[in-house]
């Protein structure tokens, strides 16, 4: 249609919101190249010091650690979420389908604080796991899980599970079952059929889910802050400390900016790296 009725009404509010977001990002960019004035909320002149400071061991290690944490979490999440998504899409009973859906999606809507708090009770020295292990006589001194990387990863996997399940299931639900039936009729074993048909076809969902899980883990703050307890430093916890403990907003901005660039770079890389897997089915 040549006429586009209401296009102004439809687009301008969204454009305003986009402008707000763009302005916030521009503000970060601007602060990241300004000098820190200790003891003041105002900033000084132009400088690249905030970026050279990123290379200091504490921050370089935290950066590296965060990337590892994100990769680890996204990988575990993928392996745990795939069977659930598969079951969700393929299970016949409507009631069972609803149960799986609600059980796996509810955590998404609980927010980071409630979920992190729950994990503190599960992982704590007097928590669920230690109590069970103690009463079974497997351990006599509590296992230290709070303030450790594995503890943080466990809680983070729980945070990213729902979105991964949704994205994988969305991809799987659009795969025609007849492809699998055709493969099986041609003599492919269930495992072979899965590896050569289902898995390659669900690749877009996997890439989308993995990228999102990566980004969400990078974004997580309450979990590494509370379960890491200062022993597990991530970009998010450092940004918060720089901002609200030392009021060094310029440095917080440069750290955020570096994190943002890295997130986009990793997601782009991931999409490239996963391309060969999509071609698995052709061999």
């Amino acid at each position: 249609m040549k006429q586009r009725p209401f296009i102004g009404w439809f687009v301008s509010p969204a454009a305003l919101v986009a402008l707000g977001l763009a302005a916030a990002m521009a503000a970060i960019l601007q602060y990241s190249v300004r000098a820190y004035v200790p003891g003041s909320l105002d900033v000084g002149g132009l400088t690249l010091e905030n970026f050279t400071a990123l290379l200091r061991p504490l921050y370089a290690w935290a950066f590296w650690g965060t990337i590892l944490l994100c990769l680890l979490t996204a990988t575990f999440t993928l392996f745990l979420a795939y069977p659930v998504a598969y079951a969700l899409v393929r299970v016949r009973s409507k009631a069972l389908k609803s149960f799986i859906l609600i059980a796996s999606v509810t955590p998404l809507f609980l927010g980071e604080v409630v979920r992190t708090y729950s994990w503190m009770i599960v992982l704590g020295n007097n928590g669920f796991i230690n109590s069970v292990l103690k009463s079974l006589g497997i351990i006599d001194r509590p296992l230290q899980m709070m303030f450790t990387t594995p503890g943080v990863v466990a809680a983070l996997v729980h945070v990213t599970m729902p979105i991964m399940v949704i994205m994988l299931a969305a991809g799987l639900s659009h795969i025609d079952r007849n492809y699998e039936k055709a493969a099986e009729s041609l003599g492919a074993s269930p495992v072979r059929c899965f590896l050569t048909v289902t898995l390659p076809l669900s690749m877009p969902g996997i890439v989308a889910g993995f990228s999102t899980a990566f980004a969400w883990t990078f974004s997580a703050f309450a979990t590494p802050q509370l379960i890491g307890g200062g022993k597990v430093n991530t970009v998010s916890t450092l940004v918060y400390q720089l901002g609200f403990a030392s009021f060094n907003f310029p440095f917080a901005a440069s750290l955020s900016l570096a994190g943002l660039v890295m997130t986009f770079a990793v997601i782009a890389l991931m999409k490239r790296a996963m391309r060969p897997v999509e071609r698995l089915g052709e061999q």
């Binding site: 687009v11 969204a14 454009a15 919101v17 986009a18 707000g20 977001l21 763009a22 302005a23 916030a24 990002m25 503000a27 970060i28 601007q30 602060y31 909320l41 990228s211 999102t212 980004a215 990078f218 974004s219 703050f221 970009v235 998010s236 940004v239 918060y240 901002g243 907003f249 917080a252 901005a253 955020s256 994190g259 943002l260 997130t263 986009f264 997601i267």
Partner: peptide, 27 residues
């Protein structure tokens, strides 16, 4: 472009958006 910007909060860390808006409000 507009679509990409509006969907970007799905991958931009929340602390980055929070920090950006905080600085913006100060400016």
């Amino acid at each position: 472009t507009l679509e990409a910007v509006l969907l970007s909060p799905l991958v931009i860390p929340h602390f980055t958006i929070g920090l950006g808006l905080l600085i913006l409000s100060a400016q």
